[in-house]
């Protein structure tokens, strides 16, 4: 049974019960309870392929989205995100409900999942081999990731490169991809088949619209992938497409410096990053043209053994 198998009224009923619903999202089991129903249509679409778990298991996060204060329901309404009963951040405008839920989940993963090394990176897979795209904000990671996910690469994650220290493979966490501002139109033009949700304007990151994770990506979210390439993308207007090899120590410092919990993982973090860099080919990719960038990355997958 998947979230989208429920009709939307039934989803509304279940998710408003005190016990909420239990949803599998990548390696995590999330208990979701809503006191705010405005986001149901977008949630139903974006989370449609996630399996519902049988009740009675141990959940990783108990998250809620509620109205904040009874008065505010009418006057500049606000929504509050809570995890296990605590609000990690200030309430936001209620109209930003879905982005808030997604940011909230990011917070949960980043603050809790320290049994994994968490890289700040998009991850995609082709032919059993994974491409890791660590990205500073504004480097075009989400746009590139969405484009690849609609051109034959399997989406593992747009935000979190989850490395299991035991075997060094990457665990999928396919989530709706938040496109910001101009990227929304870029993707609409580039991949008309991409399913894009409503645009939320005036968030702290500008206008945000989510791309529904491709169905196949969610269906295969239990299959880890072996890292093969680390590519640091950098989008720059008018820049030519250039793929330059990167030496290992630079790659190490950039991967570790971009991770959410490298320091916290201690010795294990050092070993995991060193192994990752050692088993991958590392590059820097400068680009302005999406098609050309995809061509270069596709060629990597075709040509490199």
């Amino acid at each position: 049974m998947r979230v989208g198998d429920l009709d939307i009224d039934e989803l509304a009923r279940q998710v408003q019960r005190p016990c909420g619903i239990d949803v599998c999202i990548g390696p995590f089991l999330v208990n979701l309870q809503l006191g705010l129903t405005a986001l149901l249509p977008v949630l139903w679409r974006m989370w449609g392929d996630y399996p519902l778990a049988v009740p009675g298991q141990v959940r990783d996060f108990h998250v809620r989205l509620d109205h904040h204060g009874w008065l505010r329901r009418w006057w500049r309404p606000q929504a509050r995100f809570t995890v296990d009963g605590r609000s990690p951040f200030q309430p936001l405008a209620a109209a930003h409900h879905f982005p808030m839920l997604e940011w909230g989940l990011n917070w949960c993963v980043a603050r809790r999942a320290h049994h994994l090394l968490m890289l700040h990176a998009a991850v995609l897979e082709r032919g059993g081999r994974a491409l890791v795209l660590p990205g500073a904000p504004g480097a075009g990671k989400s746009t590139l990731c969405t484009a690849l996910a609609h051109r034959g690469w399997r989406l593992l994650s747009d935000e979190f490169g989850l490395v299991a220290p035991q075997h060094g493979r990457l665990l999928p966490l396919p989530r709706p991809i938040p496109l910001k501002n101009d990227s929304i139109e870029v993707i609409r033009a580039f991949a008309p088949e991409a399913e894009i949700g409503p645009a939320f304007t005036g968030t702290r990151k500008g206008t945000v619209a989510h791309v529904r994770p491709p169905r196949a990506a969610v269906m295969r979210m239990d299959e880890p992938a072996t890292p093969a390439w680390v590519v640091f993308p950098r989008w720059q207007a008018e820049a030519p497409t250039r793929l330059e090899p990167l030496n290992r120590s630079d790659a190490f410092l950039m991967v570790a410096g971009n991770a959410f919990n490298y320091e916290l993982c201690g010795e294990g973090g050092f070993i995991t990053v060193a192994r990752l860099v050692e088993r991958c080919r590392c590059y820097r990719l400068g680009y302005s043209d999406l098609d050309a960038a995809l061509g270069v990355l596709g060629a990597l997958a075709e040509t490199e053994p």
Partner: peptide, 22 residues
């Protein structure tokens, strides 16, 4: 100390401080 050496350059993890140095 944990160390890796690549092309003569060295990354070093100091176990007591938990800091990584290049």
């Amino acid at each position: 100390l944990l160390e890796v050496v690549w092309d003569g350059e060295r990354l070093l993890y100091q176990g007591a401080s938990g800091e990584t140095h290049y």
